[in-house]
Amino acid sequence: MNKLNKIFKEKKNRISSLFFTAGFPSLDSTIPILKTLEKEKIDFVEVGMPYSDPMADGETIQNSSKIALENGMNLDILFFQLEKAKDEISIPMVLMGYLNQVLKYGVDKFCERCKASGIETMILPDLPIFEYENFYKEKFEKYGIQSVFLITPQTSEERIRKIDALSETFIYVVASASITGVKSEISEKQIAYFNRIKEMKLKNPTMIGFGISNKETFDTACEYANGAIIGSAFIKMISESKDYLKEISNWNFTN
């Protein structure tokens, strides 16, 4: 059982997760941010691998990726930082990025470095389940790496069932048809969709993300899923703050 499975087993609701981009705001900020989030008892984090062409991301994450790349962040450096800090960090991490980064790095090499860094879960939004099943599943599993898939308001019930059967960690419920960091309130239409998912009684826990930005939206999301993920709003906070580690400590959206 991986670290994330354990969390979902022990905690059934209000599971908190934050997304941020590795190498943003500075090349060496990734480990301090992870340590701060662990100290603040965030349940797990998603670490974004900065990419030049993040097609599912809005402006905030695009900008953070651009800055991270300008800072010199790359997969070699990220894995080096994570491996070095491995014994000091126990918060579960999910690596998030685009398939081309994994392909170019080499699927085996990528999985080996994940394993050495203590990473057991990955989200690659542009890896569709057809490709995953046919070409990647076996390889990822060989290294003990689990994939998380997204569902959206447009995903059919049949396909959600299929994704549920393929998933072993959690299902990422995209809150609305949008790229990251766009919507700020949760509409009735979204509530109906969350309810629809809830009533499907999936075998996997669910986490709601995209458009979750503060305590209010986090609370609402947690009524319908096991937890929620904040991304763009967290990155905005980091970029607007002079002392972001302190601000992270002071930011309380879970209580």
């Binding site: 990419y51 030049s52 062409d53 097609m55 790349l69 790359n74 997969l75 070699d76 685009y98 398939l99 081309n100 980064q101 994994v102 392909l103 170019k104 790095y105 542009d126």
Partner: peptide
Amino acid sequence: DMGILHGSKTLLMQDEFGQV
């Protein structure tokens, strides 16, 4: 060399880390 761009696996100008 081979990579993924705009939803298609194709030939692509990219660096060693797959950045376009």
